[in-house]
Simulated scan of single mutants.
Amino acid sequence: MIETTPSLIVFLIPLAYSPGPGNLFFAAAGARFGLGATLPALAGYHVATWVVTLAAGLGLAAAAGAAPGLFTALRWAGVAYVLWLALGFLLAAAGAGPEGQGGDARPAGFGSGALLLVLNPKAYVIIALMFSQFLPVGQEAGHGAAVLWITTVFTLNNLVAFTVWSLAGDRLAAHFRDSGSARRLNTFFGVLLAGVAFWLAAI
């Protein structure tokens, strides 16, 4: 598996760094609360990434294939959750304080980060595609080790990408510290997340 790792990373980089529900949320969270306050949600998202990816590689995908309605339900739950996140930013824009914090708004915690991954249908598509391309076929003896390696590389690559998105949001917010600019930034991320939700509903 180690010899195919460079190809796996090349495959994952555009998927991890392109806009999606996860990285756009963390960019918005970084802009609103700063990188430090976003770290618990980042940890939750990527612990969940590792657990879900490992389970998928070990056979969860086959089980889900036997119940196609499960993925549909998950997709709509994800759409609703991303819309809820978008609403939070739009409400903050309507009542932003001096630094755009939105009154009693608090940064997302570990559980919220984990829930974002669980309800992110883009993540499941990427996981299935990744295993279909990089999991060795016909090597049952090494199947578990290969799944573990791919899962870990995937999770670490995502962690770096999402940290970069969070840091970019944090740096962007440094230029929008007055209340009017903070409202515009929250509106921008709220509309962007709403757009992602509608895109998820359409695919």
Rank of each mutant, 00 (worst) to 15 (best):
A62C: 02
A64Q: 08
G65K: 03
A66W: 09
A66T: 09
A66P: 03
A67G: 00
G69M: 11
L70D: 05
L70H: 05
F71T: 08
F71K: 02
L74W: 06
L74V: 11
L74C: 06
W76R: 06
W76T: 02
A77L: 15
G78Y: 03
V79F: 04
V79Q: 00
Y81E: 02
Y81R: 00
V82Q: 00
V82C: 00
V82T: 05
W84C: 00
A86R: 00
L87A: 15
G88V: 05
G88A: 05
G88D: 13
L90I: 08
L90A: 09
L91D: 12
A92S: 13
A93N: 06
A93C: 10
G95W: 05
A96T: 07
A96Q: 05
A96D: 09
P98E: 15
E99F: 14
E99S: 13
G100V: 07
Q101C: 04
G102K: 08
G102W: 10
G103H: 08
G103C: 08
D104R: 14
A105N: 08
A105M: 05
P107R: 06
G109I: 08
G109P: 09
F110M: 10
G111V: 14
S112H: 08
S112W: 10
G113Q: 10
G113V: 13
G113D: 12
G113M: 12
G113W: 12
L115T: 11
L116W: 04
